[in-house]
């Protein structure tokens, strides 16, 4: 189902992930979050930006436990745990945050 953001239409797959990674802009994350009844805070953006950097470097969306560990290393132990990440992204930090970030569904997400 396509998503409308910033007056433009973006193609998504059947699970709501953006089809073209390069299409992504922050407004897409805002719209997706609103659809999930979530308001994005700086804390959310920290994770979304982290995911985009991770993809840029490794060409994959990390599995949730990999994300948790990597966040812990980069942003501190108080953030590198699933309780914190689930509090931000209740539908799962891997799946939901990756979707907001315009990434594919995480590799190793089962």
């Amino acid at each position: 189902m396509p998503i409308e953001a910033n007056g433009k239409t973006f193609e998504t797959d059947e699970e709501g992930y953006l089809v073209n990674l390069s299409d992504w802009e922050p407004a897409i994350a805002e719209v997706m979050a609103a659809q999930d009844e979530l308001e994005l805070t700086d804390e959310h953006w920290e994770i979304i930006n982290f995911l985009r950097e991770y993809y840029d470097e490794y060409q994959i969306a990390p599995a949730v436990r990999v994300l948790t560990k990597a966040v812990g290393k980069k942003l501190g132990k108080d953030k590198g745990n699933s309780k914190y990440l689930y509090s931000l992204f209740p539908y799962g930090p891997g799946k939901q945050a990756c979707r907001f970030a315009g990434l594919p569904k995480p590799t190793g997400c089962i």
């Binding site: 470097e57 490794y58 060409q59 994959i60 990390p62 990999v66 560990k69 990597a70 190793g108």
Partner: peptide
Amino acid sequence: MKNFSPTYSALGDY
């Protein structure tokens, strides 16, 4: 084609 060689660097994280 997708250059997936950077993904080998993520194996350590996994």
